Amino acid sequence: MEVPFFPTLFITCKTWALRQPFFPTLEDWLVNHPKIYEFSWNNGKTPASSHRFLTLTVLTYISFTFILSQVSRPTLARPVLKSITAVHNIFLLTLSFIMALGCLVSIFSEVPNFNTLVCFPRGKSPTGPLFFWAYIFYLSKIVEFVDTLLIILSNSMKRLSFLHVYHHSMVVIMCYMCLDSAQSSFAMVLVTNCVVHVVMYTYYLFCALGMRPKWKKMVTDFQLLQFWASFLIMAMLVFYHFTGAGCSGILSWCFNAFFIVSLLFLFSDFHAKSYSSSSNKVKGA
């Protein structure tokens, strides 16, 4: 049994992509490279794959964030801080673009149909190109901890909200669980998240360079849209799970469902407080 419309859309997009003259080159670089094609996630053996590493990494991030936000901190010259921030944003927006492209090419190259994309069969092992890009995605979420350090060094403590710390710490756990359980549908979530992050880090880069784009609200709107898309993807996973032979990683899906619901609530609250108050100020001016 299939979800209507999406299988046809998937085949149409896949057929179009495979016909492009540049696709074989992208496939060679982003799918068939031996390091990518032969990737295998082995808990405790693959770098950064042990439960101990995950636990210590998240606890260290939360502890250091709390400590550094409470004590007196070294101050960097503003030009130096801006330069570091700009380099950090360039790195992450470039990496996000490569991850989105790599995962998308892997989907079109490796996944035969929409059903398989949403619902990996039970017993699926986390190997191959899709899981390579999931692994890079997981590591990138640890690199994103630098976002918090830059906020602290810039003394922009209003930006160091519960939402910020909660999001950065929990998303690492989510990515780890997706890899460790070979969770179904993660590839679509990865692509949508990376596309949003390209937009987000481009905005932050402009800010670091002294420009203030007028599309700040669009960044938050994109994030909210991403969460709603994740809901749709998770709903389709449940549909395929209970109308077929079952999907891989359904238990980690439960954790991710809770996490995304909580993020949607927190981001919606942030959106309402940030932009409703702004519009009220404009009306009262």
Score class of each variant (00 low, 15 high):
residue 38 E to G: 04
residue 82 K to D: 15
residue 29 W to N: 08
residue 82 K to E: 15
residue 45 K to I: 14
residue 59 L to C: 11
residue 91 F to M: 10
residue 47 P to Y: 06
residue 49 S to G: 04
residue 62 I to F: 11
residue 115 N to W: 00
residue 106 S to W: 02
residue 67 I to Y: 13
residue 64 F to A: 11
residue 56 L to Q: 09
residue 80 V to R: 12
residue 28 D to F: 08
residue 32 N to Y: 12
residue 57 T to C: 14
residue 107 I to G: 01
residue 41 W to C: 06
residue 106 S to L: 02
residue 63 S to W: 09
residue 87 V to L: 13
residue 67 I to N: 04
residue 86 A to Y: 06
residue 57 T to V: 07
residue 113 N to F: 02
residue 41 W to Y: 13
residue 63 S to M: 06
residue 105 V to C: 01
residue 72 S to D: 15
residue 74 P to V: 09
residue 108 F to V: 06
residue 97 F to M: 10
residue 85 T to E: 07
residue 39 F to A: 05
residue 105 V to W: 01
residue 102 G to H: 00
residue 90 I to P: 00
residue 71 V to F: 12
residue 62 I to Y: 11
residue 91 F to I: 15
residue 38 E to V: 01
residue 33 H to Q: 08
residue 68 L to T: 07
residue 34 P to G: 04
residue 114 F to H: 08
residue 96 S to E: 01
residue 86 A to E: 05
residue 66 F to Y: 15
residue 106 S to P: 03
residue 32 N to E: 12
residue 109 S to N: 00
residue 52 R to T: 14
residue 80 V to D: 04
residue 102 G to N: 01
residue 87 V to M: 07
residue 92 L to S: 07
residue 36 I to W: 05
residue 94 T to A: 15
residue 102 G to D: 01
residue 71 V to A: 06
residue 69 S to P: 08
residue 107 I to K: 02
residue 52 R to H: 10
residue 73 R to M: 15
residue 87 V to T: 07
residue 63 S to L: 13
residue 62 I to S: 06
residue 40 S to L: 06
residue 77 A to H: 15
residue 49 S to W: 04
residue 48 A to D: 00
residue 69 S to Y: 09
residue 66 F to A: 14
residue 39 F to E: 04
residue 106 S to N: 02
residue 103 C to K: 01
residue 103 C to D: 07
residue 88 H to I: 04
residue 106 S to G: 09
residue 115 N to Q: 04
residue 82 K to L: 13
residue 42 N to S: 12
residue 94 T to P: 09
residue 83 S to M: 11
residue 93 L to S: 05
residue 47 P to D: 05
residue 67 I to D: 03
residue 53 F to E: 03
residue 102 G to M: 00
residue 115 N to K: 11
residue 74 P to I: 10
residue 48 A to H: 08
residue 35 K to G: 10
residue 50 S to I: 05
residue 72 S to N: 13
residue 111 V to Q: 01
residue 92 L to N: 14
residue 88 H to P: 08
residue 67 I to P: 06
residue 55 T to C: 12
residue 69 S to Q: 07
residue 47 P to H: 05
residue 81 L to W: 12
residue 53 F to G: 03
residue 75 T to D: 11
residue 49 S to H: 03
residue 43 N to F: 00
residue 108 F to E: 02
residue 104 L to E: 05
residue 48 A to L: 14
residue 36 I to V: 12
residue 64 F to H: 06
residue 65 T to C: 10
residue 44 G to L: 10
residue 96 S to D: 02
residue 42 N to K: 15
residue 102 G to W: 00
residue 46 T to W: 08
residue 101 L to Y: 01
residue 82 K to V: 06
residue 110 E to I: 00
residue 60 T to N: 10
residue 47 P to Q: 04
residue 37 Y to H: 13
residue 43 N to R: 09
residue 35 K to A: 15
residue 39 F to D: 04
residue 102 G to V: 00
residue 41 W to D: 05
residue 58 V to S: 09
residue 63 S to E: 00
residue 110 E to Q: 12
residue 107 I to N: 01
residue 48 A to I: 10
residue 92 L to F: 09
residue 98 I to W: 08
residue 103 C to M: 13
residue 64 F to R: 02
residue 52 R to W: 13
residue 97 F to L: 14
